[in-house]
C-alpha cells in the first residue's frame, strides 16, 4: 500500500516525532517497502483463528490487596530533567 507523506505526518504526530523534511520521503519509502512485504500475511487464510496476545494459557495472575511501602520520593525524582522539591515539572499542561 502507498505510504503517503500525510500518513507519515499522522503517525509522526501520534508518536510525537517530527522527522526533518529531508528524512520524511526516505522514511515513507522504507515503511512502504516494509509494509508491502508484510502483506505476505494476507496469503495465509487465518479465518476465525483467535488472535493470540498471550502465548501461554496463564490466567488470573493477581496480587492480594496489601499496602506496600512506597518509594522514597527523592529516588523517584532523582532522574527528572526538571523538578522541584516534590514534583516533576513540565511546561504548561493544564487549561
Amino acid at each position: 500500500m502507498k505510504i503517503t507523506t500525510e500518513l507519515i505526518a499522522h503517525i509522526s504526530q501520534l508518536s510525537r516525532l517530527s522527522l526533518p523534511e529531508g528524512e520524511q520521503a526516505a522514511m515513507a519509502a522504507q515503511l512502504e517497502r516494509i509494509v508491502d512485504y508484510m502483506d505476505v500475511l494476507s496469503r495465509l487464510d487465518t479465518g476465525d483463528i483467535e488472535p493470540m496476545s498471550h502465548v501461554f494459557p496463564v490466567r488470573n495472575v493477581l496480587r492480594a490487596d496489601e499496602e506496600q511501602p512506597s518509594c522514597d520520593r527523592e529516588a523517584l525524582l532523582a532522574n527528572a530533567p526538571a523538578r522541584d522539591e516534590e514534583s516533576f515539572l513540565t511546561p504548561k499542561s493544564v487549561e
Binding site: E86, S87, F88, T90, K92, S93, V94
Partner: peptide, 15 residues
C-alpha cells in the same frame, strides 16, 4: 494530578 503554578509558568506533576 497536574497543578499549574502561574508564578513560574510551570506545571507540577504529582503521581
Amino acid at each position: 494530578k497536574l497543578v499549574h503554578d502561574p508564578w513560574t509558568d510551570q506545571t507540577r506533576a504529582d503521581y
